[in-house]
Design a protein around this nucleic acid. Structure first.
Length: 482
RNA sequence: CGGGGAGUAGCGCAGCUUGGUUAGCGCGCAGCGUUUGGGACGCUGAGGUCGUGGGUUCGAAUCCCACUUCCCCGACCA
């Protein structure tokens, strides 16, 4: 029996059934639970604590790039949504409608926002008069509703939490710069805080956001080799400005339409976190977003031992608690072994064991969640050792995820090899493309994989389209996606 | 939205084919005692509108119809 198997009793085997493993972990680690409403979930305190850390870390970056938070209404009049044809068409199938308020049937239906472009644009038209009013850099943290047919906790739920940034600029260049700036903020944020390596790139026209001129995304590889879109940033051009009449008087005395962007990441990131770092024992949370960084598990038999351990822990406590998120597990009803498994399931990155032996030797045992490596450290150096180790774990998780992605990525030029790869195993395929949507659609039909994006850091194309064999115009990453 | 599977105690399941007394089992939960360095053990105990609604029947967890929710595989989306 493998080490993993010996330690795990209640979770579906990850290799056997990845989907069930995912659901088991989300439920058993108490990140979320199914709500009594179709497609909806309850984010439980532990899961919400992760979201709060994600929010805090991202909000800091959003503000550092000059944006401010605001809040727009949940309800959007139907007429607003209908104004931009492409936009409505894109969202129509998944909009929830309010037709009645109290006992009165509404004259105009209200959409529960699937995204807020239309309300925000309506307000921007009112607020923007002069070039002096630009740029407008606003972000909102909100819930949105999309009536999805198939739902899964965190990955796709009817209602989800996200942040949506909406900006307006005087020039195209400035708006394009903003679009890429925020994409880069997402890339850095996801890689630094969530330890998830991503590929930043341009979406193909077929995968573009409804109403956008260009859509960019960051794409991550899950442990089953499938891709997860972890964030998007859109250059909206003047589409919405024209429809919602957002104009300003420029320095040259001319009235012009603004250029806009929008960008967002959602609670889906938590699903990604689970699927990238988790293992057979459950969750592994990168230290920087972990609600609990270190769990202290005391070990004792007799009352005397318990008291000795308690004194020992109390002496360490000031050094630990100052800047670390620490949990002390003094529960009487569970054995240490149970607690080990319990906190591993919850993904706490570092465990600190203190038993009679450690008290005698003036030491503690540190156990890493990611590789279960044990280190004995003297009591005096505990806080420093813990801090160091958390940094190490954060990096190790990123490195492991990156190595996994590379091991499951291939550069392919022949269609047959692509089909073979997608049928036997999953992963990312780097290939070249002629840019014809017909080839893209045919590839999807053939392999179930889609063009995830056109990586920004890719070299210039120098070959032929993997499907039609004509000269390629770009390099793409293909994968089956969530 | 199409195809398949499922809903019985907090969780995992049996019972249903062939309707018939108080609907079982394991884990978990509560109390007490012994335990505690990788998911401890004993004893005692609590816990169920059998997903919801309707129908058939003297009688339904079991048979029939509708609805609903979840899971898996596809088509659509963050």
């Amino acid at each position: 029996m493998s080490v993993e198997k010996r330690f795990v009793e209640h979770i579906t085997d990850r290799e056997e059934d990845f989907s069930r493993w995912y659901t088991d972990v989300v439920l058993k680690a108490e990140l979320a639970d199914y709500a009594p409403v179709r497609g909806c979930m309850v984010i439980r305190p532990y899961g919400y604590a992760i979201w709060e850390r994600v929010q805090a870390a991202l909000d800091l970056r959003i503000k550092a790039t000059g944006h401010r938070n605001a809040y727009f209404p949940l309800f959007i009049p139907e007429s607003f949504l209908s104004k931009e044809a492409e936009h409505v068409e894109g969202f129509a199938p998944e909009v929830a409608w309010i037709t009645q308020g109290g006992s009165d049937v509404l004259e105009e239906r209200l959409a529960v926002r699937p995204t807020s472009e239309t309300v925000i644009c309506t307000m921007y038209a009112k607020w923007i008069q002069s070039w002096r009013d630009l740029p407008v850099l606003i972000n909102q943290w909100a819930n949105v509703v999309r009536w999805e047919k198939v739902t899964r906790p965190f990955l796709r739920t009817t209602e989800f939490l996200w942040q949506e940034g909406h900006t307006a600029h005087a020039s195209e260049a400035e708006a394009r710069e903003e679009t890429l700036r925020m994409l880069e903020v997402y890339r850095e944020f996801v890689e630094t805080e969530l330890a998830i390596p991503v590929i930043a790139g341009l979406k193909s026209p077929a995968e573009r956001f409804a109403g956008a001129q260009d859509t960019y995304s960051i794409e991550a590889m899950m442990a089953d080799g499938r891709a997860l879109q972890a964030g998007t940033s859109h250059f909206l051009g003047q589409h919405f400005a024209r429809v919602f009449d957002i104009t300003f008087l420029d320095r040259d005395g001319e009235r012009k339409f603004v250029y806009q962007t929008s960008w967002g990441v959602s609670t889906r990131l938590i699903g990604g976190l689970v699927m990238v770092h988790g293992d057979a024992s459950g969750l592994i949370i990168p230290p920087r977003v972990a609600p609990v960084e270190v769990v202290v598990v005391p070990i004792y038999r007799s009352t005397e031992e318990k008291e000795a351990v308690a004194r020992f822990v109390a002496e360490m406590q000031p050094g630990l608690c100052g800047e670390l998120r620490v949990e002390f597990d003094w529960r009487e009803e569970y054995t240490p072994g149970y607690k080990f498994a319990d906190w591993e399931l919850r993904g706490v990155p570092l465990r600190l064991e203190v038993g009679p032996r450690d008290v005698r030797n003036g030491q503690v045992v540190l156990v890493r969640r990611d590789n279960r490596a044990k280190t004995v450290v003297p009591k005096e150096g505990v806080a420093a050792a813990v801090r160091d180790m958390l940094v190490t774990i954060q990096q190790a998780l990123f490195d492991r995820a990156l190595a996994f992605r590379e091991a499951n990525s291939q550069e392919l030029v022949r269609l047959a090899n692509f089909q073979e790869m997608m049928s036997e195993q999953r992963g990312f395929v780097h290939a070249q493309w002629c840019g014809d949507p017909a080839c893209e659609a045919a590839l999807k039909e053939l392999t179930a994989a889609t063009i995830r994006n056109l990586p920004l850091d890719a070299a210039a194309p120098d070959g032929t389209c993997i499907y039609c064999g004509k000269p390629a115009t770009c390099r793409v990453v293909l994968a089956k996606a969530y």
